[in-house]
Amino acid sequence: MSPWSVEAPCTPHCLTGAAPRVPLAETARRYAALTRTLTHSLAMGDRLADPRVLREQARAVLRALGVRLETDPAPGGGAPGALIVANHISWLDAVALLAVEPATVLAKHEVARWPVAGTLARRIGAHFIDRTAMRELPLVVQQLARTLHSGRSVLVFPQATTWCSVTGGCFRRAAFQAAIDAGAPVRPVTVDYVQAGAPSTVAAFLGGDDFTSSLRRVAAARGLSVRITVHSDLRGTDRRDLAAAARAAVCGAHPHERHRASRASKLGSHVRTPGPHLP
């Protein structure tokens, strides 16, 4: 196993008690609406990569599944050309984030082979990474830097796998080097799920899960909302400080993490990390 591979300890046992499910007829209606939406997205071809089209189609997927989108943007809004870094709970995270800010997505290479989802990912210009092939990492970082330099935002999940809570796992540092190389800001974003006003794990993609069972839970969920909280942009010249500051913003900082966040947001260290781009 690659030293960059991550296996979260979360299992289906992490699922908490959820609100009652919707009736079977409503679940069936949601599946039908989702099928229509995905079919329409596939028919768009390369037009799906247009930011306005991508945002609307992502929102259409959420509507089809009965998932409410709640947003809390950072002051000043989010200009394109940023490295968007978010915690990772579900396959639904990327849909919700693209519904707020269209971006190029960095996904694991397995996604490229998924039916429908893989085709759609390629259509929107996603970058794919094989986490078992460490030697590919510098090339991926260069690709992300070029995309950022072109003025397009890039979405990455630096926790490297899904967790049942916002605070699970550390932030891998490699992608932050792309922001430094491109002179781009880092935009931390928190994703969390709520049912009936309480935190919910119903959308979590947990160890041992498959996509079908996870989709079934989401389609049957009553009153599910996904909340996207956008934090202020960060800039810095040290990927370690940037990763720590981003995690502090996304996950809720402990006192020592607040200190690191302050350093990075104020250009903390002015020494670029030498050597190859490693996580």
Rank of each mutant, 00 (worst) to 15 (best):
R123P: 07
W114S: 13
K108Q: 13
D46I: 08
D93M: 00
A28R: 15
P115G: 05
E70F: 01
A103E: 08
V53M: 12
P51R: 06
A32E: 14
G66R: 01
N87G: 02
E101V: 00
G76K: 04
A117P: 05
A86P: 07
W91H: 12
A103Y: 03
A28I: 14
R59F: 00
R59V: 00
Q57C: 11
R113F: 10
D72H: 12
V53I: 15
E110W: 02
L62S: 00
D72R: 14
T35Q: 12
T27D: 12
L62C: 04
T27N: 10
G77L: 10
R47W: 10
R113Y: 12
Y31T: 09
P80S: 02
S41M: 14
A117D: 04
A86Q: 08
R30I: 02
D72Q: 14
T37Y: 07
V116S: 06
R123C: 10
D50L: 07
L120R: 13
W91V: 05
E101A: 13
D93Q: 00
P102L: 03
R63M: 06
V105I: 14
R36Y: 08
A74N: 05
Q57F: 03
G118I: 09
I124P: 03
L92A: 06
R123M: 15
L69K: 07
E101I: 00
A86V: 12
E56W: 11
N87A: 02
G125K: 04
E70W: 01
V67Q: 00
P51F: 11
D46M: 12
R55N: 01
H88W: 03
G66H: 06
A79F: 01
L48H: 02
G66V: 02
P75S: 09
G77F: 07
L97M: 08
Y31E: 14
T37G: 03
W114L: 14
V105L: 13
L120S: 11
D50N: 14
L83K: 14
D46E: 15
A94N: 04
Q57N: 13
T27W: 12
A82C: 14
H109Q: 15
V67R: 00
A107S: 13
G66T: 06
R52M: 04
A58Y: 04
G118C: 06
L106S: 00
T71G: 02
